[in-house]
């Protein structure tokens, strides 16, 4: 993970952890690194890491066990997948259609590609 300087790092941390949960790299119920471990590993300020983790706790993706650490919430994956499904067409499909129209790819070619690629 390399952080860029174009958006707040705490948001990038939250995104990365969400991504790990959606892909299954981090399992529900699994303990995540402490903020100090995370800060040391990625060489970032511990307060920044803590802010990213706090955001995930607010979002219901992580929860705290006092004195033990932070864990992935039992329903975190569903929660995140639902959120991403809601924005999938607006974020992913619509821009693709705009681009296809701009460069003259007929929609039927796209459908054909989706069928071939999806079944491969």
């Amino acid at each position: 993970m390399v952080f860029d300087d174009r958006s707040p790092i705490y948001l990038q941390i939250a995104e990365q952890i969400k991504n790990d949960i959606v892909t299954g790299a981090l399992a529900e119920g699994e303990q995540v690194m402490s903020t100090n471990q995370y800060a040391a590993f990625y060489r970032i300020n511990p307060a920044t890491a803590a802010k990213g983790f706090a955001q995930l706790v607010d979002d219901g993706v992580l929860y705290k066990k006092r004195g033990i650490g932070m864990f992935v919430a039992p329903n975190a994956r569903d929660l995140l997948r639902t959120g991403r499904r809601d924005s999938f067409f607006a974020d992913v499909v619509d821009p693709m259609i705009r681009e296809a129209k701009a460069i003259g790819i007929p929609l039927k070619d796209i459908l054909q590609h989706i069928r071939t690629y999806g079944e491969a």
Binding site: A39, A40, R43, P46
Partner: peptide, 13 residues
């Protein structure tokens, strides 16, 4: 320098 940054963060924590 990287070792310095690592030691700094570890001891600061």
């Amino acid at each position: 320098r990287n070792l310095f940054y690592d030691m700094l963060l570890a001891d600061y924590a």
